[in-house]
Design a protein around this nucleic acid. Structure first.
Lengths: 193, 193
DNA sequence: CTGGCATGTCAACAACTGTTGGCCTACAGT
DNA sequence: ACTGTAGGCCAACAGTTGTTGACATGCCAG
């Protein structure tokens, strides 16, 4: 997709090319993982020469860092239905996962690559923990609760979108929400068992 | 580890070498994932020439197939405490994950490699589903329940052993069992929500 | 003693990778 | 018209990878 060039730029504005590279990179990283997503393939998808990738992002690691910037967009606790927060969160993440390649890309790379794992941890600490801290009754326990919630959500994402267990793929959104919702709700708010 | 050679073999029995290769391969696949685990490194670990790997396993895919043969050793339902099956299962998998590199290897490769994913699905279908079918009240729903159970167990394994979320690593075995046990129990036996 | 087979090494191939530097070319400002 | 510069391409490098075939060597059977 070459975006429209507002009259008067050079052949293409550098920003447009950088964006095209990022798009292609996200798709490739999501589909192939870090090692098999080659710079050459990404450049081909973006319709430019591999050396341009280096010009704009320095090296492959830099490209991945840029391509894996991610915002989970977890809704603020106040906007969630008090009683069905678990279900609402599950629903949110199903949406997120189905509409954004970056989540799968980050997960794939996080599992294979040490730097990728560090990045996933940063997202977890920076975005998941704070939200859980705003929900759970004992904020000092938020990290543990966040880890539990994440384990269930990550697990379902892997089963459904990465490993593609047939029953997990076939299951309807509603079924998943109905089954996982209570689990997440319990991890968020239940007394320590 | 060169195993003892019963008097009268050639320099080394082929079985011993094959086993040494498998050990090294499991370790490397677990540590590095499929792409970065090179045949050369595996051969070096096993103390032999890379070409021997090809001789015995044909190619890298064949080596991985052999190295990722896995038995989850899920206990038969009859031997489980009727009331705490969920907790017992969680405990079993924690043990399994901590004592066998192959699980991590299979998971890592399953997430990056299409053939690896197929293999994980086979293990799931062949070993998880039957056990769940022997436990849950409605056997025709076993695949779905098995997927749910797997999602939670896989998710915790990834958070704790692969991504190493600090809270998931710090958590004690007992805490994990206490939190996940009821979840798994519900996935196994609860009425459909 | 001699042959044959199993176990193993060595060196090389062809493909592919990330990365680099030099060159081209169209546009904007003068 | 001229030139500087930003956007882009080309060709090549150096390293690594999976994989292959030719060759060495120890052991047992005859």
């Amino acid at each position: 997709m070459t975006t429209e060039a507002p009259a008067g730029g050079p052949r293409r504005t550098s920003g447009a090319t950088k964006a095209a590279i990022l798009d292609a990179a996200r798709e490739r990283f999501a589909a192939d993982g870090y090692e098999r997503a080659t710079i050459r393939a990404i450049a081909r998808d973006a319709g430019i020469d591999p050396s341009m990738v280096m010009r704009y992002y320095g090296n492959k690691e830099g490209l991945f860092a840029a391509a894996s910037e991610i915002d989970l967009r977890i809704p603020r606790p106040e906007t969630l239905p008090a009683v069905g927060m678990g279900a609402a969160l599950v629903e949110h993440f199903l949406d997120r996962w189905e509409n954004d390649d970056v989540l799968t890309a980050l997960l794939r790379v996080g599992v294979t690559n040490a730097a990728g794992a560090e990045r996933v941890r940063a997202v977890f600490t920076g975005q998941m923990v704070p939200v859980v801290a705003g929900i759970c009754p004992d904020p000092e326990d938020a990290p543990r609760r966040a880890a539990l919630v994440s384990s269930q959500i990550l697990g379902m994402a892997i089963a459904r979108y990465v490993l593609r267990f047939p029953p997990a793929v076939t299951m309807s959104r509603e079924d998943i929400v109905d089954w996982l919702g209570p689990t997440v709700q319990r991890y968020l708010t239940a007394e320590r068992p």
